[in-house]
C-alpha cells in the first residue's frame, strides 16, 4: 500500500515537472487529480457552485502559468490549494463589495458601515429551523462571518479533512496556529448556531 502511494506521489511529481516544461497533457492529469478538492474548497468559501467551478478553473490556469515558481514539485497539492483559497477569498471580497454596494443603492442612503450584508447574515436569519438542510445553510452563513484564516482553517481541516500540517502549509502559518484558528472558528460558530445545537 505504501509502495503504491509512493508510486502515485512520484507520478505526480513527474507530472509537475513535465507540466512545468509545458506538457499540457501532464497538467491535465494533475487537474483530474485535484479538481474535486479544488472545487470543493472554492465552494465552501463561496457557497455558489458556479462561482466555485469558475474560480477553481482560474486557479488551475494560474497554477499552470506559475508552475515555475513552485520550488518543490512534491508540494504541488498544498500550493494549488493556496492558489484556490486566495482566489476564492479575493472573489468573495469583490463579490461582497458589489453586494454591499447594491444593497446600499437599494436602501437609497448611500452610507457605508451597517450595510446589507450584516442584515442578511444576522443571527435571526440563521435561526430558521433545526432541519439539516437549514443547518447546512446556517453553517454556510456562519462561515461567511468568520475571519478569513479561521474560516479557511476550519474548512480545510474540519470540512475537507486535510492534515493540519498541510493546512499550515496552505495558510503559511504554524500547525499550532492552525489548531488555534480551528478552535476559534468552532467557538464562534457554536455561538452563531446556538439554536441548532
Amino acid at each position: 500500500m505504501a509502495k503504491a502511494t509512493d508510486a502515485t506521489a512520484q507520478m505526480e511529481v513527474d507530472d509537475v515537472v513535465l507540466a512545468r516544461d509545458g506538457d499540457a497533457e501532464a497538467f491535465s492529469r494533475l487537474v483530474r487529480s485535484y479538481q474535486r478538492r479544488a472545487v470543493s474548497v472554492a465552494y465552501r468559501l463561496l457557497s455558489n457552485i458556479e462561482d466555485a467551478t469558475d474560480v477553481a478553473q482560474d486557479a488551475f490556469v494560474r497554477a499552470y502559468r506559475n508552475l515555475g515558481q513552485l520550488e518543490d514539485p512534491t508540494r504541488f497539492g498544498p500550493w494549488l490549494m493556496r492558489v484556490v483559497s486566495n482566489l476564492s477569498l479575493n472573489y468573495r471580497r469583490s463579490r461582497a463589495a458589489k453586494k454591499a454596494y447594491s444593497l446600499d443603492e437599494l436602501a437609497g442612503d448611500g452610507t457605508e458601515g451597517d450595510g446589507g450584508i450584516d442584515r442578511l447574515e444576522s443571527k435571526a436569519d440563521l435561526n430558521v429551523s433545526p432541519q439539516s438542510e437549514e443547518l447546512h445553510a446556517a453553517i454556510s452563513a456562519g462561515m461567511e462571518r468568520l475571519p478569513d484564516k479561521q474560516r479557511l482553517a476550519l474548512i480545510l481541516f474540519s470540512v475537507e479533512g486535510m492534515a493540519q500540517k498541510e493546512v499550515a502549509e496552505i495558510l503559511e502559518c504554524s500547525v499550532e496556529l492552525v489548531k488555534w484558528n480551528v478552535f476559534q472558528a468552532r467557538k464562534k460558530l457554536r455561538e452563531m448556531l446556538d439554536s441548532f445545537l
Binding site: 457552485i49 470540512v159 475537507e160 468552532r186 460558530l189 441548532f196 445545537l197
Partner: peptide, 14 residues
Amino acid sequence: ELNEALKSFGCSMP
C-alpha cells in the same frame, strides 16, 4: 455536535 454537523456539511455539495 458542531463537529458532526461540519462533517455532514462537508459531504453536502451540489
